[in-house]
Design a binder for these strands. Structure first.
Lengths: 226, 226
DNA sequence: ACGATCATTACACTACGTGCAAGTTTGCAC
DNA sequence: GTGCAAACTTGCACGTAGTGTAATGATCGT
């Protein structure tokens, strides 16, 4: 890959992004973009290591130098999304109930530019088991990072409790995405994304309040509370 | 593979298990056993399609006729486990709060013969990312089946709520397993399994009660409830 | 016993992911 | 600039995962 050096027209935000760093991040992004473009235009079966590498202007071997797995190249948007949400979460005031902090972090998604690509990937995964496995891993990573974030917020908390909270929270989020996919299949419009966000906050609210509606809803007999 | 016909020494429980059915289930079980034995004795790197097929007395191609994925062959114990828990769940009285039904289903695991192999697999997965991905899928399947079980129990329930409940429940269970793995690494003794079970019920209890201990635990300032 | 049906097998093929030994670019000191 | 060292890229070969296909073998109903 030949990268023509852009002269210092734009002063970099980070102190010393050496040419090596610039090239690496550019290559990385090129691979991500190429894989997503390929997925969009030709479907998942076209997303092979050869094709992606070719589209990114890189050798097949280099592709695997950047991403150990073909699927992991498609995780760029999801990682950015998770990163963003976690950052909002971590800046929440510490005295706020943790569930409220989580809700706030999710509501920080008014910026659809992060949510939309993820939604698109989730929609694509709905049609292909291959991609679905990828998403599972992404969610799992998300849970692990949430655990870290929470322990950073509450250093003395019981680790089991933290893990249970994080994983059930992620599970609830997964459910919201899944429900959104099944009802608004393929629709990535702004209205649809709004509904996705509603589902997410609803899911969190249900997790917070327990699931009262799931008890003896249509049961004919004695309504007995434990 | 040559299967010598065992004569009808044991009357079958199911009405007409034809010879074909018998052979198929036997082959299936042979593959499962072979893959697990190989995992135990030689580690994950030895579990290749060739080796498993050879150990099961079957061609490589036949292996893939039975299991579309190498990892899915290792899911036998997990599936049996999930099957068992879900069956107990479905036989719970309908007027019982759903969380209580779930707890009861989990407590039906006094029989360690189902839990132990799963715990063994989880422990093995802890040491290898490859297996970890498999477990993710297994948990995911579990959530999907739980959704079915709940909708069967409460036909009128809101599907989003059901999905959120199921997925957060599974997430809580995952957390319990994960915590158990990290604390009792490799120990598959009866005492250790008892602790695993404790973690599972604790996780469910926390999900039921919300996570009060996660709020302002070490916070110095105003304790404000939302 | 025989034809229909289903299961098993060998073989070929595409593709993933990795180790290795080159070649190429960048950083750094002079 | 020149030269050297470190980092990056590339081609190649290898083992392995899965899949399609066509032939062979086992099982079923009659």
């Amino acid at each position: 890959m030949i990268v023509i050096a852009p002269p210092n027209t734009s002063p970099p935000a980070t102190p010393t992004p050496s040419r090596r760093e610039i090239n690496k991040t550019a290559t990385r992004q090129a691979i991500i973009d190429a894989s997503l473009a390929l997925l969009r235009t030709e479907g998942l079966e076209a997303v092979t290591a050869d094709r992606v590498a070719e589209a990114a202007g890189v050798s097949r071997r280099t592709f695997f130098n950047y991403f150990s797995t073909l699927e992991s190249a498609l995780n760029g948007p999801t990682e950015a999304f998770v990163e963003h949400v976690l950052q909002i979460f971590e800046t929440q005031p510490r005295e706020l109930p943790i569930m409220a902090a989580a809700v706030n972090a999710l509501n920080g998604l008014a910026d659809r530019s992060l949510l939309a690509p993820v939604a698109e990937l989730v929609a694509a995964a709905h049609a292909s088991p291959q991609l679905d496995r990828l998403q599972l891993e992404a969610w799992n990573d998300c849970a692990a990072r949430l655990v870290d974030a929470i322990t950073g917020r509450l250093p003395g908390a019981d680790p089991l409790t933290v893990s249970v909270f994080a994983n059930s929270l992620i599970g609830a989020g997964r459910a919201a995405f899944e429900y959104w996919i099944q009802t608004a299949d393929g629709d990535l419009s702004d209205a649809s994304l709004t509904r996705l966000q509603d589902h997410l906050t609803t899911a969190l609210a249900q997790l917070r309040d327990g699931f009262p509606t799931l008890n003896v809803s249509a049961a004919p007999a004695t309504t007995r509370e434990a």
